[in-house]
Amino acid sequence: MDINQKFTPQTWPKHPEQATLEGKNKLVGLWIFLASDTVLFASVFATYIALKDSGPAGMEFAARDLYELPLAFIMTMLLLTSSLTSVYAMYHMKNYNYSGVRTWMGITVLLGLGFLCLEIYEFYHYVHIGFGYTQSAFSSAFFTLVGMHGLHVVIGLVWITGLIIRNSSRGLNLYNAPKFFAASLYWHFIDVVWVFIFTVVYLMGVLG
């Protein structure tokens, strides 16, 4: 693969992310990694479900009173939208339109940042009312599960931002196309995990 090879929208391959062996390896590798990350989340989900609402004798916090559905809903919307914008970015990548990729990836990052700020606010609020990390088994499990997802978001943000900065002046080529594609795939994964968190933690917490 020649990194300086110049393309036009006509010569640009239909699946640029799979046009090289390196790209193909990267994507297969990422899919496989996501499979194992899923198992990691499953373990922590199971732990959370087992420890929900349990704490020292006389604990006053229960999921039912703790969570604020409207906040969780806004966060969900932000993250879902950011997944959509990353799809737009990939659409532009297939059409060899770098500025489209950059713009939509940038919007994805902004939406992700918004999500993260709300999450930090939420955590801060809980700690403030006495529901800290060490308060009970329930609190440890909650912060670990949701925090682990938050950490994935941070990694995703750093990754995408890094890609935008690194490639800001050189446009698309067959070396960085798989990288953008991989980052967007990872971002979808984060989104899917959040859907489960929203359901299992927040919805089932408030309703169940």
């Binding site: 604990m59 060490t134 440890s140």
Partner: peptide
Amino acid sequence: ANFFDHTMGGN
């Protein structure tokens, strides 16, 4: 944290 400490609700 308190995942395994039963006095804190752990298991």
